[in-house]
């Protein structure tokens, strides 16, 4: 499968999953482009895992549509075809405990025609995985490495990871992140969920922030640095919030006589508007991913 640069490898439209009255994912519009590392950021319970499960046909959407590598996620046959080119590393990294490392490699290899034996051997050596050892006897860090070996050896177009660093020590996290960057440099699109802002900030090209099952922010880290700003405005009397309903304004918070405006562009126009309505102080500063994340999920809760 050849994927054009900038093609959408994941695309959902109004994707929804309800469990009774509870909406785990609500009208999700998600676009993930090829040949990028996309971080899927959200608090615990935001709907990240449910979204991934719907993408892989493990869970059926209540409504809405979606495609994975151009194939419909709710069509079992199409989804199965897509899964030939998709690798998935789950949150638990639980693998068949009763198999040895080499048995599990042999088992997984049988499903993928493009299996790269030399990559498996290289990673087996690099990760120092004992081939004869049962999976149940591996630490979580080693299981993660084995899961990555199984994922990368099949030459996936898309690698989906659900909370990949969960439960790993700092050294293992570092190795994991380096592996993901290496895979991306070889042309694999990476989509990983996380609630660890620092690791997303370190390796992601693009970030989607999910809150209460909905994408609340979607930007590249370049856009974050270039366009996202916090404009803080001080007023002598009650600040007029409605004056700031204008292009580029993401959120406006009022704290007594001060307004904090999060913008994704157009910061100078917002500052000018503040001055035009007699703001006594105007301050425009760059904003970090952490601030955008906290602002996004706190305003939603």
């Amino acid at each position: 499968m050849i994927i054009m640069p900038d093609a959408l490898v994941i695309e959902t439209h109004q994707l929804t999953k309800r469990f009774g009255q509870y909406a785990a994912v609500e009208a999700l519009d998600l676009n993930v482009r090829a040949h990028q590392i996309t971080g899927f950021l959200g608090r615990n319970g935001a709907g990240k895992s449910t979204t991934i499960k719907m993408l892989l046909n493990m869970t059926r959407p209540t409504s809405g549509t979606g495609t994975l590598l151009g194939m419909r996620i709710d069509d079992p046959k199409e989804n199965r075809e897509a899964r030939r080119s998709v690798a998935y590393v789950g949150e638990d990294k639980q693998l068949y405990a009763y198999m040895t490392v080499e048995e599990l490699i042999r088992f997984t290899r049988s499903f993928y025609s493009e299996w790269r034996h030399e990559v498996a051997q290289r990673l087996l050596t690099a990760y120092q995985l004992p081939p004869k050892r049962k999976v149940r006897a591996l630490s979580k860090g080693m299981r993660t490495k084995l899961a990555l070996l199984l994922a990368l050896s099949r030459k996936p177009e898309l690698l989906i990871l659900d909370e990949p660093s969960e439960g790993l020590d700092p050294v293992a996290i570092e190795e994991l992140l380096q592996t993901l960057v290496g895979a991306a440099s070889e042309g694999t699109t990476i989509f990983f969920s996380s609630h660890q802002i620092t690791e997303v900030e370190r390796i992601a090209d693009r970030v989607c922030i999910l809150d209460h099952g909905t994408v609340v922010e979607d930007f590249s880290l370049d856009e974050l640095q270039r366009d996202y700003r916090r404009v803080t405005l001080g007023f002598a009397s009650n600040p007029p919030v409605d004056e700031f309903r204008m292009p580029g304004v993401r959120r406006v918070r009022r704290a007594e006589r001060q307004l904090s405006v999060l913008v994704s562009g157009n910061a100078e126009a917002v500052a000018a508007r503040g001055r035009s309505i007699n703001a006594v102080s105007v301050d425009v500063v760059p904003i970090s991913l952490r601030e955008v994340f906290l602002e996004s999920v706190q305003s939603g809760s």
Binding site: L56, M58, P76, Q94, Y96, A97, T108, F111
Partner: peptide, 15 residues
Amino acid sequence: EHRTVGFTLALPVSR
């Protein structure tokens, strides 16, 4: 229960 279902269902195999 054993939390391996994700690995199994991600294989290109029908249920």
